[in-house]
Amino acid sequence: MRALLLLIAALASLAASPALAWGAYGHRTVAAIALENVKPATRAQIRGLLHAAPELVTPECPVKSLEDASVWPDCVRRDGARWAYTFPWHYQNISVCEPFNIKANCSYGNCVSAQVSRNAHLLADRRLPAEQRLEALMFLTHFVGDLHQPLHVGENHDLGGNRVKADYGMATGLNLHWIWDGPEAERAISSANPPLVRRYSAAEKARLATGTVTDWARESWQVSRDFIYPAAFGKLPCNRTEAEHVVWTNEAIEKAIPIVDERIERAGLRLAKMLDKALG
């Protein structure tokens, strides 16, 4: 337990940085699920596009696999001079205290839902150079993961929980968004039984790989509205007088595990479906 707390404390030092949805572990898991469930021809197309990685000239963010591709958009954000314009693409702040509106906070397509659709279109365009299609593949893989992290969509004037100081069990000094990006996601993925990365049955795909991009955003918003904020604050905090420091209790940790697992599964299988359509 002491080692775990030290690790969480170390990760918390990064919490002031822009949030990385699901963290590297979550994003790589989404990509691994997708790769296990795409058609063989799609897998071959992905391998071919990965050969164009040197043309991107991002040696500090190497890409040799779809799992690497899933974290590339967060990695290149460190180079603000080249990639600052992509920052708003990772999220879409839709208030949990107002009716759902997919057009909210998405001026000129600068939001995660619009970028999922845009990059799927670019990936499918075989007229484009390989390096541009690879860039679209990496953004698509990452943004499908972002869209399924509830606090990258639902929020309450707090940047998706980034401004809400929170303790994770006995670990202090975190914020609500970071808890869902990191320790909560890692706990859920590592304890999943059966493992999340596997070949899913046709019935499972029919149940999980459903809906439109708007549907996926609405699902994330609903998880934020109906579970995350009430679990953190004891109610849906819409009067802006609630405490700015909450405790993500052990009870909330356990209740969140199946929710996180399903969001990751849906992201991976929906990504697989999009990749088959774009590259098939």
Rank of each mutant, 00 (worst) to 15 (best):
M1E: 07
M1A: 09
A3D: 08
L4Q: 07
L5K: 05
I8Q: 03
I8C: 00
A10E: 09
L11G: 14
L14T: 13
S17C: 00
S17K: 02
P18T: 11
P18L: 07
A24I: 05
A24M: 08
A24Q: 13
G26R: 00
G26P: 00
A31I: 07
A32W: 03
I33F: 05
E36S: 12
N37T: 10
V38I: 14
A41P: 00
A41E: 14
R43V: 10
Q45L: 03
L50N: 02
L50H: 04
H51N: 08
A52E: 11
A52N: 08
A53I: 04
V57G: 01
P59S: 13
C61L: 10
K64N: 15
S65I: 05
S65T: 13
V71Y: 08
P73N: 06
V76N: 09
V76R: 12
R77P: 00
R78M: 04
G80C: 10
W83N: 13
T86M: 14
W89V: 04
Y91N: 12
Y91T: 12
S95P: 04
C97L: 08
K103Y: 11
K103M: 06
A104W: 05
C106Q: 12
S107F: 14
Y108K: 15
G109E: 11
G109Q: 12
N110V: 03
S117F: 00
R118F: 14
L122Y: 14
L123D: 08
A124E: 09
P129S: 10
A130S: 14
E131W: 13
E131T: 11
R133H: 11
R133G: 07
R133I: 11
E135Y: 14
E135N: 11
M138P: 03
F139E: 10
F139Y: 13
L140Q: 06
L140Y: 05
F143G: 03
G145S: 15
G145M: 07
L147Q: 06
L151R: 02
N156G: 00
N156P: 00
H157E: 12
H157G: 01
D158I: 10
G160T: 02
G160D: 01
R163H: 10
D167S: 15
G169Y: 07
G169T: 04
L174N: 03
N175V: 02
N175G: 04
L176N: 01
H177W: 01
G182D: 07
P183T: 06
E184L: 14
A185K: 03
A185L: 06
E186K: 08
R187G: 02
I189G: 06
S190C: 02
P195Y: 00
L196M: 07
R199D: 01
Y200D: 00
A202N: 12
A202T: 11
A203G: 01
K205R: 15
A209D: 02
V213G: 04
T214P: 01
T214K: 13
A217D: 05
E219G: 09
W221N: 02
V223T: 09
V223E: 03
S224R: 01
D226I: 07
G234S: 08
L236V: 07
L236W: 04
P237L: 06
P237S: 06
E242N: 14
A243M: 08
V246W: 06
V247S: 09
W248R: 06
N250S: 13
E251M: 08
I253E: 11
K255S: 09
I257A: 15
E262Q: 13
I264G: 02
I264R: 03
G268F: 01
G268T: 02
G268I: 02
L269D: 03
R270Y: 06
L271R: 11
A272Q: 05
K273Y: 03
M274H: 11
K277G: 13
